[in-house]
């Protein structure tokens, strides 16, 4: 592949631009609040783990992570489970209204969360799910299910049709074919779809904050609220931020070649 002159320099500058703000957050999370406020230091001169210790011992903090993980996992499982058969149907068959349905799914993926905040609040209060992880998990389905369908459809289309036909000739029933043959073949696709469902549910704040109050409050909401109430505990805020980056950073290596594909809904 041809590249442009000075590419090493451009790349280096851009990567520094990306990493510098993140470094600053990590840097702050290891400083004492006295050091943050009084001096400008490029690295922690008196490194401390007090902020992390506080998060892992104070229930009002670590419960936020547990709540977030709870609804994210529920959402990912629901999304993948319902999206798998649908992706197969969209990939292999034509049926009444298939194109409209496919577009309708996409339009929900793209709908602004702000539009749904208030009606979701009413809906989930009415059916008694308000302030439970289920409310947020179901609410996030509105963008994650379409996302999973679109991504998985791309992967299923990559499986040659002859495999289906051979399996059916060999006497496989549809459910058996689906679980024994198709799912293993698109395992990497399921991994990618699950990763993106996890990620988009993890990064969303508006709906998660609107649909919870005390019991199921996500870490993102705890971060915004504690900051305004406690008079800016910068070190703690930074530590909480670093911890929310970790899930993404852990799996990033495995999905590095699929990032573009996932964001483009499996169409690149």
């Amino acid at each position: 592949m041809h590249s442009i002159p000075g590419r090493r320099l451009i790349m280096a500058l851009f990567l520094i631009f990306l990493l510098l703000p993140i470094y600053w957050l990590v840097n702050m999370s290891f400083k004492t609040n006295a050091e943050i406020v009084s001096t400008m230091t490029l690295w922690p001169h008196t490194p401390t783990l007090q902020h992390y210790r506080r998060i892992f011992t104070d229930e009002s903090w670590y419960s936020g992570y547990i709540n977030s993980l709870e609804y994210v996992v529920i959402n990912t499982v629901i999304s993948i489970a319902v999206a798998l058969p649908a992706a197969y149907a969209f990939s292999r068959y034509r049926f009444l209204g298939d194109k409209h349905l496919f577009f309708w799914l996409l339009s929900n993926r793209m709908a602004p969360a702000a539009v749904y905040a208030l009606p979701f609040f009413n809906l989930y209060s009415a059916i008694g799910l308000f302030d439970t992880p289920w409310a947020v998990a179901l609410a996030h389905c509105i963008f994650n299910v379409p996302l999973a369908v679109w991504i998985l459809e791309g992967f299923v289309s990559g499986v040659p049709r002859e495999i289906d036909e051979t399996a059916f000739l060999d006497g496989y029933s549809f459910p058996r074919f689906f679980i024994k043959i198709l799912v293993p073949l698109i395992a990497s696709g399921i991994g990618v779809a699950a990763f993106f469902c996890f990620m988009f549910s993890w990064v969303e704040l508006l709906l998660a904050r609107t649909l919870t109050s005390v019991q199921a409050k996500p870490i993102a909401a705890i971060m915004t609220r504690t900051v305004s109430a406690a008079g800016m505990d910068w070190g703690l805020l930074a530590a909480a931020g670093v911890l929310t980056i970790i899930p993404g950073a852990l799996v990033i290596w495995f999905v590095r070649n699929y990032i573009a594909r996932g964001f483009a809904l499996g169409r690149v």
Binding site: L18, I22, V203, L205, T244, I245, G248, I252
Partner: peptide
Amino acid sequence: LPLLIPWNV
């Protein structure tokens, strides 16, 4: 990396 950071963070 920046794509996977929660938006509020």
